[in-house]
């Protein structure tokens, strides 16, 4: 079965900057793909190409079975886009915003109004329906923006950094909304620079860096590429560090190319790659106890997507400090 979103070799150059350098993507129907990458990696440009806002220099894209370059208007009928900025008119009320979008999706005025009411209810905005969007909180605006993208229940949705700039509570709320949406069968392409978000919402993750997809797979597959689990121990006394390190080193998977036991002296922390899970952890605790080593903390740490990103790109995923740069494209 062909994917709901397919892209092959998308290239887009702005002046001297190659924003996209041959992006290939495939999103099967009814699944969520998380496009993960730092600012300027090409996430927004990819979304703009797939949503007909930008014409790629070369490459091919099919969305909802329709060729994006040949029939952009037909694609527009089958997609919803929720952008990085909450693109709602702040001087219109929530209801007026949604009704306008409905009418521009070619719905009759009355049908558009009924649909607006339905969405306001669904997104917990019914109480604020007749207030101008200017008075809404950041989280409410995002919800309104998302509602606007869902007016015609499009089979394919694009969300460009839907939770950037939201506080944790609002982020959680928006995640719940997105999960509901996906459980209804909508295909979703989501860009994010929050590794946690991709981990949480996406079936598949494509890591983008410098205009290219450098890895794609499930969160577990990507983590497996980075390596297995690690045991982290923080000892109480500085003089115990050597003994504890030697003890832990016995369990190290050093020979399998998983790296050495490392010691962070100032934090009294020892880390070693292991396999064996919780059972092993119990064993280590018993041995440390037998040696009379007091510990402040011990834990089994699985690789996070941060680790994945670091090992794939050689640099740490950036935080949201230069949002405007990507937006400028």
């Amino acid at each position: 079965m062909p994917g709901a979103i397919q892209a092959e070799g998308l290239v887009k150059t702005f002046g001297d900057v190659k924003a996209l350098d041959g992006v290939d993507l495939e999103v099967p129907e009814g699944t969520v793909l998380g496009l993960l990458g730092p600012n300027g990696a090409g996430k927004t440009t990819t979304v703009r190409c797939l949503t007909t806002l930008l014409r790629p220099d070369s490459g091919r894209a099919v969305v909802a079975g329709i060729d994006v370059l040949k029939h952009p208007d037909a694609v527009r009928r089958s997609i919803g886009l929720s952008g990085q900025f909450a693109a709602v008119d702040e001087y219109l009320t929530g209801r007026e915003n949604l009704q306008m979008v409905g009418q521009l999706y070619q719905m009759r005025a009355k049908a558009a109004r009924a649909r607006a009411d339905e969405l306001l209810e669904q997104f917990h905005l019914a109480d604020a329906a007749d207030r101008t969007a200017k008075t809404y909180s950041g989280g409410m605006r995002r919800r309104l923006d998302l509602a606007a993208a869902l007016v015609v229940s499009p089979p394919v949705m694009f969300m460009d950094e839907p939770t950037t700039g939201l506080d944790p509570r609002n982020r959680q709320q928006l995640w719940d909304v997105i999960k509901d949406l996906v459980s209804g069968g909508t295909t979703l392409l989501l860009t994010t620079q929050y590794l946690e978000e991709a981990d949480h919402l996406a079936h598949d993750i494509a890591v983008v860096d410098q205009g290219k997809v450098i890895a794609q797979g499930t969160s577990d597959q990507l983590k497996a590429r980075t390596g297995g689990e690690r045991v982290e121990v923080v000892v109480h006394e500085r003089e115990h560090i050597r003994t504890a390190a030697a003890l832990l080193d016995k369990y190290s998977l050093r020979g399998l190319g998983q790296g050495d036991t490392t010691v962070e002296e100032h934090m009294r922390k020892i880390t070693t790659p292991v396999s064996g899970g919780a059972k092993l952890l119990a064993e280590i605790i018993r041995e440390l106890d037998a040696e009379g080593i007091e510990i402040d903390d011990i834990g089994l740490r699985r690789p996070t997507l941060d680790d994945v990103f670091l090992s794939l790109t050689g640099h740490v995923a950036e935080s949201a400090q230069s949002d405007d740069e990507e937006a400028a494209k």
Partner: peptide, 16 residues
């Protein structure tokens, strides 16, 4: 404000 992006992603008449 990004409204033009929203409008351009909708199946509406180009000059509207």
């Amino acid at each position: 404000k990004g409204l033009i992006d929203r409008f351009r992603s909708l199946p509406m008449a180009r000059g509207a």
